[in-house]
Each structure stands twice: as structure tokens, then as C-alpha cells.
Design a protein around this nucleic acid. Structure first.
Length: 444
DNA sequence: TCATCCCGCCAACCG
DNA sequence: CGGTTGGCGGGATGA
């Protein structure tokens, strides 16, 4: 079953270079989607008509939490200093917009620091404690002192700013919660240092990052260590809240909670009685291996579906930035950089694999349950041969899991590279060369 | 049915 | 003015 793409994946393999080359061309897909949601008839077809069944598209495969885990796995290394958003988006097979989401919350808890446009610096989990400490201090200060928990948003809300939805119109209190830079030093010469940040703060007030911090503050200051998102939203909005505002706020909290969960900073729990789950503060950021990395991207052949083409593909990697097909020109740039990007991904993954510890890599929603990271953690023992074989079987069992040819190839390549490297390392050198027949570094 | 939350439009920002 | 950010909420998916 699920013939369609799985077969594609299986076949896929060789020519890595060709893959990336081909991966770019068709990305432009159709012009911008419609002004209004599709869903309607579209979904009907059951996706590609009759046989819509194949496995399934599952939103879980694309959740922010999972993406965050993948992101962390990809960059949580010492040798990572700079992270490019496009690069990340490409590596993770998601659109840039999603990267902004996780990057914002990661930054708000100190795991990342924005270095420049499109550029972030990886701080790592070590930055979390510092960030949290500072956050708590600030929270307590605010709590005891003057400022309420959050920015003017609250005051505005409290004042009953119902209706509207325009903009919180209430430029009164700009607490400007010390930007989101909360972390260690901020980029030295922060530009607009000289006042004039106020105006633009409106937007920031509702930022995911700030909301994340306020959400976290809730845990840091309150006695209770669990809270439901509804409660959190209420607290963050103030009484005056209005149905719509609440809904929106809760949506964002869901997003935040998901990534914080993936960082193990919080944990979702089901309180026996209450229908809705709540979140418990754990406070120690670590890589959540619960949900492993998923490197699933759509087959290069077609990505077309503008919107959710359920059942036809798993992820839309479409790197078409915003929209307007009119901007194909920049593609060239992407093509050019794709090599680096992939190389980075490759290195990242290799390093992960090389560590031999279960770093949470799981290849897509369809990975064979049994195969899951077997060979990764199982290989604690020095049996070199077994290890090598593990890798073979590993690659064999995982290869088909990729929905993206490029990644599929990539993985195959990792394995090959690893085998080569490993064998050379374990026993003299060249012999293996015959086995695998090709040098390790020849990627594009 | 309702909770969950992905997706991408499009406006604010910024160089 | 074009590219970058990212708020926002429609509506699909899951329980």
C-alpha cells in the first residue's frame, strides 16, 4: 500500500547532484493561491481521487514541535555558529514562515540570538538557564513592582478595548519589555538604540517571542506549576478579553506550547477531571527525543499543490518565498546556495549519527516502527562489524522513508560516507573503497 | 462537536 | 521598492 510515493522513494537514490538541480525548477508552482481558502471542493476529491488513502497525511508530521526538535537536532552542535533561515527552512523541508515561528520562541528562551537579518547565532541549551533566570528576575520585579505582567496589551484589554481588533490602540504604556534580547549581551550596537523604537513596538507587543516569555513568566512566578492554555491566555490578556482575542491568543499559545514541549521545558499533562490538558513546567531544556526528527519532504517531481493536498504529499517544502510567482529570478541564488545548505545538513546529520547516541532522528512518519533508531543507540558496544552492518540495514530500512528525493539521496550518502569513514577508521583504509566504490566527498 | 494548530495571506518593517 | 518578518485567523484534522 501507499505505493505511490514510497515507491518513488525507493527508486530514488543515485545522482545526488541531479536531485538538487531538479529540485529547484518546479518550485514556482502555480501563482499565489486564492484569496480565500480552498478546502471546499478540493478536499473532496479525496486527494488524487479514488485511491486517496495511502497512509496518511498527518498534521503531526508537520507540527511546530516536531519541527523544533528537528531544528535542534540539526543545530545543537558546538560547531554551529551561524544559522541562516533559508538554510534551515531548506534543511528541514518547511517554508520559511515556520522557521520564524520556532526561531522566535527559541530566541525568547535563549537558545538562539538574532545576529542579523536572516541570521541567528546558536547559543544552545546553555543559554536557557541564563535566560530563564533573567526572565524570572524581571517577572518578579514586575510582579512586585509596578508593571503588570505584560505590556500594555493587558492594560488596554483591561480597559475594555473590546471590539476593534484593529490595533490595540493604546499607546500609553510602552514597557518595552527589554526587547527580546533577554539573553546575554545583545548584539552590541543595537541599531535603533537611540529611541524611536516605540512606534514599531506595536507589532512586537504581540510577537510570539514576547508571548513566549510572558507565558514562561507565568510558570516562573506562579505557585502552581501547571496551567491550561485558556488560563494562560486569560492571564496574559487580562479580563477585558474578548472572544476573538482569546481565540487568537490561545492559538499562539498552542504554537508556543508545542515548541516548548519539544524542548522539554514544559510538558502536557491531562488532569484527570478537567477535559482540557494543561502544561506543567519542567524547566530544564533538553532535546526531546520523544518525537524524533523527521526529514520528510515531498518528492521533487511534483509539489504543485498550492495548499493542503492531503494524501498527495507530506510536506510542502516549496521554497517559493512569499508568493508572486513573479520572483523567480532569485531562484538562481537558491540554486547556488543549495549546495552549501545541503552540505551543512549533511554535516549536521553526520555529526549526529556519528555521535552514536540516540539523537532522536526518526525518518518520517512512516519509518518502520522497529527500525526506529536501532543501530543508533544499540551500538554502544564496540563491535565494529556489527556497527557497520547496522548502518547498512539502517540505510536499507530508512531509505524508503524519505518523501524527498534530495534528502533521500542525502541520507544514502551519509550512510555511504559513514561506512567509508568508519571502515577506514576501523581497519586500514582503501580496502573499503572497493566495496563502496566511491570517494566520500564528491557531493556536487 | 470541539480542541488543536497548520497554513499562508498580507501588512509592518527594514535596508 | 523589494525582501524580510511575523501577526493573524480560516478552516482542516484529530480526539
Amino acid at each position: 500500500m501507499t505505493a505511490s510515493f514510497s515507491s518513488v522513494a525507493e527508486v530514488a537514490v543515485p545522482a545526488a547532484a541531479a536531485v538538487m538541480a531538479s529540485a529547484l525548477p518546479q518550485e514556482q508552482q502555480q501563482a499565489r493561491p486564492r484569496p480565500r481558502p480552498m478546502h471546499a471542493g478540493g478536499g473532496g476529491g479525496g486527494g488524487g481521487g479514488a485511491n486517496g488513502r495511502h497512509h496518511a497525511y498527518s498534521r503531526k508530521d508537520k507540527s511546530l514541535g516536531l519541527l523544533c526538535s528537528n531544528f535542534v537536532v540539526l543545530y545543537n552542535r558546538d560547531d554551529v555558529e551561524s544559522i541562516g533561515l533559508d538554510e534551515a527552512a531548506k534543511c528541514l523541508g518547511v517554508e520559511r514562515r515556520r522557521i520564524y515561528d520556532i526561531v522566535n520562541v527559541l530566541e525568547s528562551v535563549g537558545i538562539l540570538v538574532r545576529k542579523a537579518k536572516n541570521r541567528y547565532t546558536w547559543i544552545g541549551f546553555g543559554g536557557v538557564s541564563i535566560s530563564l533566570r533573567e526572565l524570572k528576575e524581571r517577572a518578579l520585579r514586575e510582579k512586585s513592582g509596578l508593571a503588570p505582567l505584560q505590556t500594555e496589551q493587558q492594560s488596554a484589554a483591561t480597559i475594555s478595548e473590546d471590539e476593534d481588533d484593529d490595533t490595540l490602540a493604546n499607546p500609553g504604556a510602552y514597557i518595552e519589555t527589554e526587547r527580546l534580547s533577554q539573553t546575554v549581551d545583545k548584539p552590541s550596537g543595537k541599531p535603533g538604540a537611540s529611541g524611536c523604537r516605540l512606534r514599531s513596538d506595536h507589532r512586537k507587543e504581540k510577537s510570539l517571542g514576547l508571548l513566549t516569555q510572558n507565558f514562561v513568566k507565568l510558570f516562573l512566578t506562579m505557585e502552581v506549576d501547571t496551567i491550561s492554555l485558556d488560563e494562560a491566555a486569560k492571564l496574559l490578556l487580562g479580563e477585558g478579553h474578548e472572544e476573538t482575542n482569546m481565540r487568537t491568543k490561545v492559538r499562539r499559545l498552542y504554537d508556543i506550547a508545542n515548541v516548548l514541549s519539544s524542548l522539554n521545558l514544559i510538558e502536557k499533562i491531562h488532569q484527570g477531571d478537567s477535559r482540557k490538558p494543561a502544561f506543567r513546567w519542567l524547566g530544564r531544556a533538553t532535546l526531546n527525543t520523544e518525537n524524533g526528527v523527521t526529514v520528510a519532504v515531498p518528492p521533487p517531481g511534483k509539489i504543485a499543490s498550492k495548499k493542503r493536498a492531503f494524501g498527495t504529499e507530506l510536506t510542502n517544502i516549496d521554497m517559493h518565498r512569499s508568493n508572486l510567482d513573479s520572483k523567480n529570478k532569485k531562484k538562481a541564488k537558491l540554486v547556488q546556495s543549495s549546495g552549501d545548505v545541503l552540505t551543512n545538513c549533511k554535516l549536521a546529520v553526520r555529526s549526529r549519527l556519528g555521535q552514536g547516541k540516540q539523537s532522536g532522528f526518526v525518518y518520517g512518519p512512516f519509518h518502520p516502527s522497529g527500525a526506529r533508531k536501532h543501530g543508533l543507540d544499540g551500538g554502544n558496544k564496540p563491535g565494529q562489524r556489527e556497527r557497520a552492518e547496522d548502518w547498512e540495514s539502517l540505510s536499507a530500512s530508512f531509505r524508503p522513508q524519505y518523501q524527498n528525493q534530495a534528502l533521500s539521496d542525502l541520507f544514502v550518502h551519509y550512510v555511504d560516507a559513514w561506512k567509508t569513514w568508519y571502515s577506514e577508521f576501523a581497519q586500514g583504509s582503501s580496502i573499503m573503497q572497493q566495496h563502496f566504490g566511491h570517494p566520500v566527498n564528491h557531493f556536487l
